[in-house]
């Protein structure tokens, strides 16, 4: 088991290096001189030339990559051109908001999605099933900005129950959590339902029934754990996705998180910030996947033995 976890962590390292390399290279090929962005359009060519040389921008690309990785390993992702602050500081500042949003949205998604999926599977093809699946479908397919504005209009504007935007109190967290969690609750519910129905066809479910277990015990004790395994992967990846920034939700509700930071960086052509934020998000996704695999092995003894 420990061996498995260690191996899983070790395999993540080359992936991380590759991902950082790709992001670095992608931003290299983007058009535009970073110095002219940094210094404004009126800067003299001679000054641009001098600053570029000072910053080592004329060094070969691999040398610059090496320098970047070395600095990044020491927590230095460079300085934002626009905000003139350390990228790492900016990430540190926005990440807690994103974490709060991701946790609240995921909790909503799990607490709604898993029971909804179970109920749907048990009441298969009954009214409850169709009703739950319809709500799930709306959550998955409706655009976040539309749902967000709808909720803001009803709960914030008309009923005045909840604040429209900002992120200062737990009340501020409710609407973003619902809107971001709904889509993921929907896909979780659908996946739980289909997996549960699939697992219920297995021979060991027949065995469980032949042992005299009541139907709910058959579902909770024998079917659920088996059917949740792929769902755990989905949940972990969704959670990691939220941690890497929910761009639209953060923008609509005015939450200063990683997503907003990235969008701002793009708008301002703020290369160091964009690079730092993108790499940070990607690392979160990789870690999320790794966590999913490790969790999977806790649930499935067959993986542990591999």
């Amino acid at each position: 088991m420990t061996k498995y976890i260690i191996r899983r962590i070790l395999t993540a390292i080359p992936i991380m290096i590759a991902v950082v390399f790709i992001i670095f290279m992608l931003l290299q090929v983007l058009p535009g001189n970073p110095i002219s962005i940094m210094m404004g359009e009126k800067a003299k060519p001679a000054v641009i030339e001098r600053v570029s040389r000072e910053l080592g921008l004329y060094d070969p690309v691999l040398v610059r990559f090496g320098r970047y990785v070395w600095n990044a390993l020491h927590g230095d992702f460079g300085r934002s051109y626009k905000l003139n602050r350390q990228v790492s500081d900016l990430i540190k500042l926005s990440f807690p908001n994103t974490v709060r949003l991701a946790i609240s949205a995921s909790l909503f998604a799990w607490l709604m999605g898993i029971p909804a999926g179970i109920i749907s599977a048990i009441k298969r093809n009954k009214f409850v099933d169709h009703f739950v699946m319809a709500i799930a479908l709306v959550g998955i397919s409706s655009p976040v900005f539309w749902g967000a504005m709808l909720l803001q209009f009803v709960f914030g504007f008309k009923l005045k129950l909840l604040p429209l935007s900002g992120y200062n109190s737990y009340k501020h967290m409710i609407l973003p959590a619902i809107i971001l969690g709904w889509a993921s609750a929907g896909s979780i519910a659908r996946m739980v339902r289909s997996n549960l129905l699939e697992v219920m066809k297995n021979d060991y479910i027949r065995t469980a029934r032949s042992k005299g277990l009541k139907p709910w015990a058959v579902v909770y004790k024998h079917a659920l754990k088996n059917s949740l395994m792929p769902v755990v992967t989905l949940m972990a990846i969704q959670f990691a996705g939220m941690l890497s920034g929910a761009v639209i939700t953060e923008t609509v509700f005015g939450i200063g998180g990683i997503g907003r930071l990235t969008v701002d960086a793009i708008n301002n052509r703020d290369m160091p910030l964009l690079q730092g934020a993108t790499i940070f998000s990607t690392l979160i996704i990789i870690i999320g996947n790794m966590a999913a695999d490790i969790m999977y092995s806790f649930l499935d003894p067959r993986i542990r033995d591999r």
Binding site: N202, D203, Y204, R206, T207, A208, R209, S210, K211, G212, L213, K214, H222, K225, N226, L299, D300, P301, R302
Partner: peptide, 22 residues
């Protein structure tokens, strides 16, 4: 429920799949 497994028990064909893997 009180009969199954208690007064009447059953053994199935496929021992490979008749036990819960987890």
């Amino acid at each position: 429920y009180k009969y199954r497994g208690n007064k009447i028990s059953m053994i199935f064909q496929e021992p490979m799949t008749s036990l819960n893997p987890v």
